[in-house]
Simulated scan of single mutants.
Amino acid sequence: MRTRTGLVVGGCLLMAYAVVGALTDADLAPGGVLLFLAAVLVGHDVVWMAAVLTVGAALTRVPPRCRPAVRTAAITAAAVTVVGLPLALGFGRSADNASVLPLPYGRNLVAVLLVVAGTTLLACVVPVRRRKAAADRKESERPAEGRP
């Protein structure tokens, strides 16, 4: 409870600092700030939350033992994609300067996402195989019925 209170108070202080700083800025364009805040609100509540709720609904079909791994993979893939997609699409790349964004970001983004998917698959498959092997061992160790 103390941690939550401390975080709320800290967040309020940071917001107050930002508002005071914005109001005392001579170059502040209130229309631009309001447009930006509206875009962030729409982007978060309409686009991002709809995507999160859709993925969450899809995750209910995943077996319960795999849900934590799949949930972690989905969050990781979303974060990596949000950061890497602008580079993969080439935003900011200048045609006359080869040193700007010189790496194959699209290929690398796909490689990272495949590593995340492969790790998730292993996290779901390996425990299942271990449980089956342990159950088979227990079954083979049982004495046959009718024997003393």
Rank of each mutant, 00 (worst) to 15 (best):
V20M: 02
V20F: 02
V20N: 00
G21T: 01
G21L: 00
G21H: 00
A22F: 02
A22G: 01
A22N: 03
L23T: 03
L23A: 02
L23Y: 04
T24R: 07
T24Y: 01
A26R: 09
A26Q: 05
A26D: 11
D27I: 00
D27L: 02
L28E: 01
L28G: 00
A29K: 06
A29E: 11
P30A: 07
G31M: 06
G31N: 07
G32I: 06
G32M: 03
G32N: 08
V33T: 14
V33L: 15
L34S: 07
L34W: 09
L35R: 14
L35M: 12
L35Q: 11
L35I: 07
F36R: 14
L37Q: 10
A38E: 12
A38G: 12
A38W: 07
A38N: 10
A39M: 15
A39G: 07
A39L: 13
A39H: 11
V40P: 03
V40K: 11
L41I: 10
L41M: 09
V42D: 05
V42G: 08
V42A: 14
G43Y: 08
G43W: 04
G43E: 08
G43S: 05
G43N: 10
H44Q: 13
H44G: 14
H44T: 13
D45P: 03
D45N: 15
D45W: 09
V46K: 07
V47W: 14
V47A: 14
V47S: 07
V47D: 09
V47T: 11
W48V: 10
W48H: 15
W48A: 13
W48I: 06
M49L: 15
M49P: 00
A50W: 06
A50F: 14
A50P: 03
A50N: 12
A50T: 15
A51T: 06
A51F: 07
A51R: 15
A51Y: 06
L53E: 15
T54V: 00
T54E: 01
T54Q: 01
T54C: 00
V55W: 00
G56R: 12
G56W: 05
A58P: 01
A58M: 12
A58D: 11
